[in-house]
Design a protein around this nucleic acid. Structure first.
Lengths: 214, 214, 214, 214
DNA sequence: CATGAATGAGACTTCATTCAT
DNA sequence: GATGAATGAAGTCTCATTCAT
């Protein structure tokens, strides 16, 4: 279903490529997080990965390839994690589980997510498109779950509200990664439980008694 | 209350400084939005501002100063806009008005907001701190309003939930700027009304009937 | 008639461009002659020209541009020199004069000619085409002169022989530049006079008495 | 008579060395012709030769060695071809035959000749000297033939003219290789016959009736 | 003997900043 | 105050060569 954008390597041994690229990604994420993509030099990436600049370029063709590999590896992880969620029978319970998995994942891969969202604009055009497609896939996951919940009458949402709400859920996840400096007093469990409460209540849609023009 | 971080200029005439910097900011925002801070050259900024590279450096000392000026001008605008909101007597109505103003502002200054959030990490340490302080001020505004609402019993939130909720409100504003590509079908009015509904319901906090462990 | 292939410069002042490029060409020719285009670094070119590497790149965009400028300046010189030859009334005398001018020019610009012929294959495609066009123009000059001589009955050449002969004359000029190491005992005057004798006799075309299958 | 400049190889088996080097030369000539010596990488040479980069370096020590091997193989071929010409009794007929062989050889080894003359300047000093010595040998061959013809009264040339004329003959051969783009309409037979006519007439040296100061 | 992954010196080019005019 | 030519540090990427397997 997903044809990967292949990154050229002059090395033949596939398993070696995988190994070296993993080293590379690990080092790059740390550096990108710390200094940003542009302030990080390819030499630094090579060093952090544990090999020489020459070796680095045996496994990629441009610096932007490194950024792409970082983004791609995140989505691989996302997929393998969220693949577990049963999408067949969407219900509020499944949705809550999906959010737990998604927010938990972001918590574990904070640096990676921050890097991806901060720096992905530096990707070459085609790589950016690929990454955006992946992002849309993720949002769609929430969209589908919300639609099922609405159809079952568990949530009270119009189709257009579903679109917005799915982005809403998605973005709150990014918040955990991006605003850690402001949320230092929260544990991930607290965050998940409070957010889930807000979000689910927000979408439950009983006739609220709040007065206002909205 | 807030001493501005002064940017050195070798020009004396204050009104000229203001004029030139305004030209500079206008040009820079467009460029930063399009290509990002790092890919934009000082020459390009000067050209977009309508003067020479030499003149640019009469009004700033480093390229990062330009970014700082962009961020600073946004907060000036935010302040003059949200200054109107009556904070004395916080209530759900005031909160809703504040959100309207805030989201409306973001809509009008989309490019500026995107640039600020995407690129502020490139600011020098002290400038970054200044900008973060400004951001905290904004979040605090929501915090104070929410606290009052809670105290009045209009919203059902614990103190810790208030902290999270204020970020929640804040971040949803960023979403309008950052995810326009995904929200093309929405008008700002739709966005404001739907978001307000989600958010207010989310915080209304009646004992919801949804089952789940949260 | 000849639209020059313009080389971009970020400097505005045209006369300064001309001056700096002249410095650049002078330095580059020496270096290219000595070490060849590829073994010469841009830093060396800048140094030989008397300015910094940064300044070099204010006047060109790529290293290949330098090579192009060298080639182009040669043809400018060739044109201004051979422009004097009266082509209206081609005759053996005019042809001999043209050869004198041409060979004399090569003698004075030996290094430049050697560089041009040795290195022009390193030019980017469009620049190479431009240079080849210039070369064809030069050969055509001889072709026209030869044609007139043939029409006047001064030389005994078929049209096809004229084509070959014009290249023949042209190439013998290159020989003076390329084989100086072998012709150290000859003065340019000797070279011109002997070559002229060979070439003119060769084309005079009386029925020679030499036996052979040719 | 001429001790070859030996190229080191870590392989012992002489016949294998010869075989591998032949593969190498064949591949390298094509590449050098197409892209020049400097733009061709050792990896490309290895690939074109049909083995790995590691193997390439088992049979040579530096990239320049490959260029030397190319040049050397050309002279081997030249020798084996022109060795047939009977130099004992130089006469115009023998000279004409020698030219035929020489030009015919160049026709068959165009690429090799072009590469040799374009790139030989990239040879290390001692290899360049070796190649030049070979070239001088070739020119000397013409010199000896011309001398004999002059002594027999078949050609009317002073000793100094003989020197120049021998280079003249030599260079016209190069022309066939170098200017094919301009001589596309000529067959090698036409070229040989026309050139021979020009050259022989040029050297026949009847008192020509052409007026002129030469 | 053959392979190909690893290395790092060094090439080209960019661009923030300065300063004489 | 305005200009823009000059500077050189620093960045990305290539490629000849080596050496363990």
């Amino acid at each position: 279903m997903n044809e990967k954008r292949a990154i050229q390597s002059s090395v033949k041994d596939e398993s070696l490529i995988e190994k070296r690229r993993a080293q590379m990604i690990r080092g790059a994420v740390t550096l990108f997080k710390e200094k940003g993509f542009h302030r990080t030099t390819t030499r630094e990436i090579a060093k952090a990965a544990g090999f020489s600049i020459g070796t680095l370029y045996e496994y990629i063709r441009t610096k932007e390839d490194v950024l792409y590999l970082v983004c791609d590896s995140i989505y691989d992880e996302v997929h393998s994690r969220l693949g577990a969620v049963d999408l067949k029978n969407g219900s509020v319970e499944v949705l809550v589980t999906a959010l737990e998995h998604y927010y938990g994942l972001i918590d574990e891969m904070q640096d990676e997510f921050v890097v991806m969202y901060q720096e992905s604009k530096s990707l070459p055009k085609d790589a950016l498109e690929y990454v955006l497609k992946k992002e849309i896939e993720m949002v769609s996951l929430f969209e589908r779950l919300l639609t099922e919940c609405a159809e079952r009458g568990q949530l009270n949402l119009t189709p257009k509200e579903i679109v917005l709400a799915s982005h809403h859920l998605f973005v709150q996840g990014q918040m955990w990664a991006f605003r850690r400096w402001a949320l230092r007093d929260f544990t991930i469990e607290e965050f998940i439980s409070m957010q889930t409460k807000f979000l689910m209540q927000g979408m439950a849609g009983e006739k609220t008694t709040i007065t206002g023009g909205y």
